[in-house]
Design a protein around this nucleic acid. Structure first.
Length: 261
DNA sequence: ATGGCTCTTGCAAAGAGA
């Protein structure tokens, strides 16, 4: 099974990039983040014409996630409240950041983790709170499905080698210790970063700032991840970052990451 | 570098992203 994750920064603006990429890279499931469109306006037809079924959870202007699957998915749901009690979820489902489905007994979770704006801000506190509920959510799913794969834009670089230059970034959003700690606690449910099963060195990134010619200079961050439960991690045969879409005209600032197991 | 660049809304300029 091949699964890709890609923050497309507006599916309507990026539609041609995404459909072209999918034709050239016919993965089983493409997990999209930041679709930035309400469900009724999601461009489903171009994917259906390629033989894919979109499962979507979107909102106006911001956020939004989608699963684009070659085979029909089972048990699709969006939001934390599909799994957790309403009082545990609170207001966190107002932003559309979670969608999941099952393919061949494998539970696939697609996430758009909050950005957090800046360390100490209200949005930062929201991000940490969101990660706390995510752990509860994944714990519940793992009890149902020992084959669990969680991917998406995590907006966190877990280690210094995931950043082009980690110096002075202790108070930076995406690399602060509290964010890293919150993500490590999520992974304690029994998930591992499959990219690092195959690649140890630094210099591999999934996001580059639009500004300051960051991509040309490879000033990037690895913040888009695939985390696998042990039975899938052991089976995994590759996890690669495809930098090609980042080279196109009017690209997303993120590029796809593909896992195979 | 309280920036830069790109997106959305909605028609100008501001918020959000990371």
């Amino acid at each position: 099974m091949k699964i890709a994750t890609w923050n497309v920064n507006s599916i309507r603006t990026r539609l041609e990039h995404v459909t072209n990429w999918l034709q050239a890279n016919p993965v089983d499931v493409l997990c999209l983040q930041e679709t930035k469109v309400i469900d009724q306006d999601f461009p489903a037809q171009p994917f259906q014409e390629l033989g894919y079924s979109p499962y979507i959870s979107g909102q106006k202007s911001y956020n939004g996630v989608a699963l684009i699957s070659r085979q029909p998915l089972d048990s699709v749901s969006s939001g934390f409240a599909a799994v957790l009690d309403a009082d545990a979820v609170g207001d966190l489902d107002e932003q559309k950041r979670v969608i999941t489905g099952v393919l061949d007994g494998v539970r696939i979770v697609n996430l758009y983790v909050p950005n957090g704006s800046s360390v100490g801000s209200e949005k930062y506190e929201y991000k940490l709170r969101w990660l706390g509920v995510l752990k509860t959510y994944l714990t519940a799913l793992l009890e149902q499905s020992p084959g669990l794969t969680v991917c998406g834009d995590f907006n966190i670089a877990l280690e210094d080698r995931d950043i082009y230059d980690a110096n002075g970034k202790e108070k930076h959003i995406m690399s602060s210790e509290a964010e890293r700690q919150a993500l490590r606690q999520v992974l304690e449910v029994g998930l591992a970063d499959v990219f690092r099963k195959f690649t140890e060195e630094t210099g591999h990134y999934s996001w580059w700032d639009y500004r300051a010619a960051s991509f040309r200079r490879n000033l990037g961050w690895r913040i888009d991840h695939h985390y696998l439960s042990p039975q899938l991690y052991d089976r995994a045969t590759s996890c690669v970052i495809d930098v090609e879409p980042r080279k196109l005209e009017k690209p997303s600032d993120h590029t796809p990451v593909i896992v195979e197991f």
